[in-house]
Amino acid sequence: MLESVRDLAPIIAVIGFFQLVILRQPIPDLGGLLIGTVLVVLGLTLFIHGLKVGLFPIGESMAHDFARKGSLFWLLAFAFALGFGTTVAEPALIAVADEAAKVAATGGMIENTDPARESYADGLRLTVALSVGAAIVIGVLRIIKGWPLQFLIVGGYIGVVIMTFFAPPEIIGIAYDSGGVTTSTITVPLVTALGVGLASSIQGRNPLTDGFGLIAFASLTPMIFVMGYGIML
């Protein structure tokens, strides 16, 4: 509980300082603000506790079990399902996809009608979800094979840079942002536990250097896939 208070203190200090000292305005609805802050602190405390007793252990135990079972196909299927399934319904992504459809419609890339926008947004959402699924698959393969992360990521960045020159300008901002919005608060701990669990059950892998990096892929591939989507349309 105390930890959560400390985690949230900076945000409250910043908002208080700007509101009172810079904007010189009273805080509207102080009571509501206090109740809200209590809820946030309580929520964060519960979440962190649930993380330690629920999400981390199941992520790691499943990683161990998959490593012991030795079926690469099912492990990769699991990795893909986890990436795709957690992204396709992600609210932040739905919001960004709708916003992107508006941009595309005003930019004249697609017809400015409801069905056209909807199909564009759905296509984008599916593209990003596929890309995250692919990212976790590649990331898991990397842990198993022990490929060095930096070559893959740097190669990916070079891909992003090259594609930027060919992608329609309207999609670039959205593509860059989509890398950031894909990884939700529940996916991150699970995927991290999966990576660390795999790296610690496979001989010769170091959980620190090999276990992390799955999220890095999940933020990289959406940029490439979304720009690809923009180029193809």
């Binding site: 109740i35 809200g36 802050t37 209590v38 809820l39 946030v40 602190v41 309580l42 929520g43 964060l44 405390t45 519960l46 979440f47 962190i48 506790h49 649930g50 993380l51 330690k52 007793v53 629920g54 999400l55 252990p57 199941i58 608060t185 529940i186």
Partner: peptide
């Protein structure tokens, strides 16, 4: 129980 904690915690967190 951990899942329930995560669920409730996130709901409180977002609500706040």
């Amino acid at each position: 129980i951990g899942f329930v904690f995560v669920l409730l915690g996130l709901a409180f967190f977002l609500e706040g």
